[in-house]
C-alpha cells in the first residue's frame, strides 16, 4: 500500500520515506504472518447486513478521517472481529453484547440521518455526517445508549483496526514488530538507523492555529 492520504496540517508526511514493513527481514515468522495478513485482501463481510455495512463504512471514514483511497479496510476488519465474536471480554449490563450493540447503534445512526436529512447516514454529505456524530459524542444519552459507552465501543473497534495497520504506523513513525532484533538506541532523541526523524517536530497539535508557536512550555 502506498502512504495513506493525509494533508500536512492533519499530520501527513511527518516521517518522509519511513516504511515499517521494510524491516520485515528482522521480524520473527509468527509476527510477520500476523502483520502481513493485514496487507492482503481483506476478509469478505460476514456480519454486517448491506444496510449496516453502508452506515459502518461512513462511520469509520469519519472516525478515522479516511476520505479517499487507499484506505485501511476498517469495515472488513471490524466485521471479522464481530463475526468471530472476538470481543474485549465484557459488556455493560445496561448495553447488549458488542455484536448486537453494533447493529442497533448503526440502525440508530441511520434513524438520525433520516429524521434530519431524509436519507441514510451513508449518503448524508460529509459535513452533515460530522455534525451528526459530534452530537452523539456530546450526548449523555443517545437512543437507548449511554453516549459515552457507545462512543467508546465505536472508537475502540475503529482504532484497534486502524492502528494495527502498518500504513498507519508509517504515518506516526512507529516501526512495529521488534523481535528478535530489539532496540539498541534508547533515550530522548535517540534513533535506530532505520527510524526516521519527525520532519516537523514543532507541529504540536495542541498549538492550534492562532496560538503561539512556542506552546506553554518551559
Amino acid at each position: 500500500m502506498t502512504a495513506l492520504p493525509l494533508e500536512p496540517e492533519a499530520g501527513g508526511g511527518r516521517f518522509p520515506g519511513f516504511v515499517a514493513t521494510s524491516q520485515i527481514g528482522h521480524w520473527d515468522d509468527a509476527t510477520s504472518a500476523v502483520v502481513m495478513a493485514r496487507l492482503g485482501l481483506p476478509p469478505d463481510l460476514r456480519f454486517f447486513s448491506p444496510t449496516e455495512e453502508a452506515a459502518a463504512r461512513a462511520l469509520f471514514d469519519q472516525l478515522l478521517y479516511q476520505r479517499e483511497d487507499p484506505r485501511v479496510p476498517i469495515v472488513n476488519m471490524v466485521d471479522a472481529r464481530l463475526a468471530e465474536n472476538q470481543t474485549d471480554g465484557w459488556h455493560y449490563d445496561s448495553m447488549a453484547t458488542d455484536g448486537e450493540a453494533w447493529r442497533s447503534s448503526l440502525s440508530a445512526l441511520d434513524e438520525d440521518a433520516y429524521s434530519r436529512h431524509g436519507v441514510s447516514f451513508a449518503v448524508v454529505p460529509w459535513d452533515d455526517q460530522e455534525a451528526l456524530l459530534q452530537d452523539v459524542h456530546d450526548a449523555t444519552q443517545w437512543h437507548e445508549f449511554s453516549g459515552a459507552h457507545i462512543w467508546s465501543l465505536w472508537t475502540r473497534y475503529a482504532c484497534t483496526a486502524f492502528y494495527s495497520h502498518p500504513a498507519a504506523w508509517d504515518e506516526i513513525g512507529f516501526a512495529g514488530p521488534a523481535f528478535p532484533r530489539g532496540y539498541k538506541n534508547i533515550g530522548v532523541n535517540k534513533r535506530e538507523p532505520f527510524e526516521v526523524a519527525d520532519a516537523r517536530p514543532q507541529q504540536d497539535p495542541l498549538r492550534s492555529p492562532g496560538t503561539s508557536g512556542n506552546g506553554g512550555g518551559k
Binding site: L6, A10, R14, C159, A168, W169, I172, D204, P205
Partner: peptide, 29 residues
Amino acid sequence: PLPITWAEHVTAQGHWGKDLRAYMSDYVH
C-alpha cells in the same frame, strides 16, 4: 502505551476524525 492504546488516550480527550490523526502523528513526542 503502544499505538492502539495511545489512540485510546487521544480519543478520551474527545478527539476523532482529523484531530485524531493529527494527534497520533505526534506520537514520537
